[in-house]
Amino acid sequence: MFTRILVPLDGSWLAEAAIPHAELFAKIFGASIHLLRVLEPISYHENPAAVDPLRWQLHKAEADAYMQGIANRVRGNLGGNIKMREDEKKNRVDYSVREGKAAENIVDFAHTENIDLLVICTHGSSGLSRWNISSVTQKVINLIYLPVLIVRSYDQSIMDENIKRYRRILLPIDSSRRAEYSLAAGIELARGEISTDSTPEAADDKSTLFLAAVIRPPELPIPEPFPIEISQLMEKLSRLSHQTVDRYLYEMKERLPVDCDTCVVESASVPSAIQELAEQEDIDLVILCAHGYSGQVTWPYGTVTLNYIENGTKPLLIIQDVPLSQVRPTAAEVAAEKSGRR
């Protein structure tokens, strides 16, 4: 499912929080890892003085040495467990150093190098802030149109350099075919983690996949209080919806080859319900499809997924259901292209 993983780094410990997650995905899916560092030249507005060529070359050399050290560390962590042929193991971890704007280079690299999973942190060298996600990360995930694993840099619990498994995986599903698109990744992550540790204890410590559905109450364009007849109809509809979704999740649970739990929640806000459930169940990873039952694929993410990107607190794997070939350039991209900028 994932064969080439891209991890952008900027030299900060915040960005490095993505590495253990990338290593775990590489072990489970037998993927290679490519580390990318983009050096952004200082603009004239930031520093009117001319950039010293010698200092810039030293900066590039330091970045290359840093990336080489990270690559060697990742190779050591992967060891011999990665599911690849012998000739592929030699190149299972690689790195590149580029110059230019970070977001543009990350997106272009992912598209030209056939990357199929981006693992990126919410914050990097600019440090933590009140915003849940940095501007560079926001730009990248909005234009990349690939599966993305977003790691929350501000969560100190993710700093463990040896993540062995996601013990509890939350997969919200809205009964649509689009949402079911994320099931394959959830199954592999729940089933494949055991193979990353050969100890007997690890085999007993299985991962659990939580299938969750959020039912919203009917929205009526009439003022409250509702007439008794309408209230009764709403209660009946809610009860029938709950029973139908319960049965849908139960049947799905019986078909899946991993340990599963199901949960149906009633809430007026789907993103809030997902966040509350993730906190209550001590979830390690949330998996969402980029779009759900509405089928609105004009934008890279649907409302629920976009809301959790911006306000969620757990690591988030987004399965992109819109192929890059079907993506139309935005008005901003068209204008930038005409002006000679990207």
Rank of each mutant, 00 (worst) to 15 (best):
L36I: 06
V107D: 03
Q68C: 04
I106H: 04
A31W: 13
G30P: 06
K90R: 11
A103L: 00
A71I: 01
A31Q: 03
D94Q: 13
K89Y: 02
G69F: 10
Y66Q: 06
S43N: 09
S96Q: 10
R73Y: 04
H111R: 12
L39H: 11
I82Q: 12
D52H: 05
F109N: 00
I42M: 13
Y95C: 02
N81Q: 15
R85W: 03
A71T: 06
N72H: 08
A65R: 14
K60S: 09
A110V: 07
L39F: 03
K83V: 11
M84Y: 04
V74F: 09
R85V: 01
D108E: 09
G76M: 10
A31N: 12
S43H: 14
G79P: 06
G79N: 05
D108R: 13
F109R: 00
P41R: 08
I70D: 05
A103M: 12
A110N: 06
L36W: 12
N77Q: 12
N47Y: 09
R75E: 10
A63K: 03
E62Y: 03
D52C: 13
I82S: 09
Q68W: 01
L78S: 08
V51E: 12
I33W: 07
A102F: 02
A65L: 10
A31C: 02
S32K: 15
A103S: 15
G30V: 01
A63H: 05
L54H: 11
L78Q: 10
L36D: 05
D94G: 09
